[in-house]
């Protein structure tokens, strides 16, 4: 029995340029989100809003209120970014329920997002303290702390990226292991039937992994998306 857990497949290659499964899945999720946005905001009314309009308003207000509560009124412009990040992350993790490789189970995705957060944090720091103040903040409280401060700043995005990636990737690994274990188990159970075709049907692989993936994908996916957004918000607004 050969169990292999592979990274995202390369679907298109031209020289050093290549498009991986992650990117294509990302496009699919983007299309879903954009279509959802168009559908939700279709036919908005000022009075007697329809059910989907109430849902859309609720979603927007949730994102806005979350940003307002965590970051304060002056960072309210971050609401669309946080909402986008949350939706992208949740749907990216949940896409594994449909048999796609979860987008967030690729370190490149989460590292990319974490680097965006890093840039936002440093940019906000420069905006508030000026370039001199920003550079000075690395030698606080004493100059000896310079390497520590630099490592501390760089560790944030890496820790965020690995946290999100690790949770989803462990889900992939566990799902793969359970999937192949169930396949082996079902072929053992069916081995008393002498027909090769029937005892190769993996009956236990139907349904059971889906139950487990509800925990590993749904719960973890939501929680990690929430934490990623939360950390982004508190890092950006925590700049003094």
């Amino acid at each position: 029995m050969n169990i292999s857990v592979s990274g995202p497949k390369i679907l298109f290659e031209w020289g050093s340029f290549h498009i991986t499964e992650t990117v294509v899945n990302g496009w699919i999720i983007m299309a879903v989100i954009v279509l959802l946005c168009i559908w939700l905001t279709h036919g908005l009314k000022l009075r007697n809003p329809s059910k989907k309009q109430i849902v859309a308003e609720k979603l927007v207000m949730m994102a806005t209120n979350m940003v307002r509560d965590t970051m304060g009124e002056k960072y309210i412009g971050f609401a669309p970014y946080i909402g986008t990040l949350f939706a992208f992350s949740v749907l990216g993790s949940l896409s594994s329920l449909l048999g796609m490789r979860p987008m967030t189970g690729d370190l490149n995705t989460t590292l990319g997002w974490a680097l965006v957060t890093f840039v936002l944090v440093q940019g906000n720091n420069i905006r508030i303290n000026g370039l001199g103040g920003w550079l000075k903040s690395f030698v606080q409280p004493v100059a000896v702390m310079l390497p520590m401060n630099i490592i501390g700043e760089i560790a944030n995005p890496i820790s965020m990226a690995f946290r999100h990636f690790g949770n989803i990737a462990s889900g992939i690994v566990i799902s793969t292991l359970i999937y192949s274990a169930l396949g082996a188990l079902s072929s053992t159970i069916l081995s008393f039937i002498p027909v090769e075709f029937i005892n190769s049907i993996p009956i236990l692989q139907v349904g059971l992994p889906a139950m487990l993936s509800i925990y590993f994908d749904l719960f973890t996916g939501f929680l990690q998306a929430y934490i990623f957004c939360m950390l982004t918000m508190s890092f950006v607004s925590g700049v003094e």
Binding site: S16, T20, T22, V23, G26, N108
Partner: peptide, 9 residues
């Protein structure tokens, strides 16, 4: 490339 696509997306 995946990083660049992630940012663009």
């Amino acid at each position: 490339w995946t990083l660049i696509f992630t940012w663009a997306n």
